[in-house]
Design a protein around this nucleic acid. Structure first.
Length: 257
DNA sequence: ATGGTCGTTGGACGA
């Protein structure tokens, strides 16, 4: 089973790239973030025509998440919020497909360390950890994907000195992500030997992609049981090379299930 | 990483 995550930065603009990538990569499950699309405008027909069933939770202008599946199972136990977290921002979409629990997240960016948005991010991650702790007790096979807006380690940052202490890499953010790892959620990417300087996001500015000035902030996390069945994990840079790309690349993990 | 661009929107704001 092939599971992926992609922050598309507007599904309206990126739909052609998404449809091309579905045809090319053929993921079984894809979590999409930053659809920036109201549910009433969601391109459901086009995605279903590509052979995928789809769930979505959107809002105007900002945020918005969707889950695409070509599995036979009907999604159950659908959630669009973290229990106990009052949030009008559409950042969460979870569903159970057969024996697999799948949660797609668009973690808050945090803007700047010390800002209100940063506080919101840390609080959001704290509530998320409580929820995922319970989810792990209820679901042996749990996959949590998304744009986490956190680079776990310095090797996930093109220039750690320049980025030191700033949003996306700050210690409180990394501690919040580490807390998820400590619950027994594994960064699938690090289960395998990887080349150096592999990232999932590059700023649109300053020709950052061409210069590979990126961060690895998009992740596929998996529970213990799935860690044992994970056979590959990688970042597909190809869509980032296209005309009018998202600033993020799809991240992929494969499981022998 | 001085800023540098996108996307949404119709002037900023968020990332």
């Amino acid at each position: 089973m092939k599971i992926a995550s992609w922050n598309v930065n507007s599904l309206k603009v990126r739909l052609p790239h998404v449809l091309d990538w579905l045809a090319e990569a053929q993921p079984d499950l894809l979590g999409i973030q930053e659809t920036k699309t109201l549910d009433e405008n969601f391109p459901q027909q086009e995605i279903e025509a590509a052979g995928y069933q789809v769930l979505f939770s959107g809002q105007k202008t900002y945020n918005g998440v969707a889950v695409l599946s070509r599995l036979k199972a009907t999604p159950k136990e659908i959630i669009t919020d973290i229990p106990g977290l009052e949030d009008h921002q559409r950042r969460v979409l979870g569903a159970t497909y057969g024996k697999l629990r799948f949660i797609n997240l668009y973690v808050p960016n945090g803007s700047e360390v010390g800002s209100d948005k940063y506080t919101y991010k840390l609080d959001w991650l704290d509530k998320l950890a409580s929820y995922l702790k319970k989810q792990l007790q209820e679901h042996k096979n749990l996959v949590v994907v998304g744009d986490f807006n956190i680079a776990p380690e310095d090797r996930d940052v093109h220039d750690p000195e320049a980025w030191k202490g700033s949003v996306l890499v700050s210690e409180p953010e990394r501690a919040a992500l580490q807390k998820l790892f400590d619950l027994g959620l594994h960064d699938s990417f690090r289960l395998f030997e990887q080349d150096e300087k592999l990232y999932s996001w590059w700023d649109y500015r300053a020709a950052a992609f061409r210069r590979n000035m990126g961060l690895r902030i998009d992740h596929v996390l998996c529970s213990d049981a799935l860690k044992k069945k994970c056979t590959a994990s990688y970042i597909d840079k190809e869509p980032r090379k296209l005309e009018r790309p998202s600033d993020h690349a799809p991240v992929v993990a494969e499981f022998d299930i």
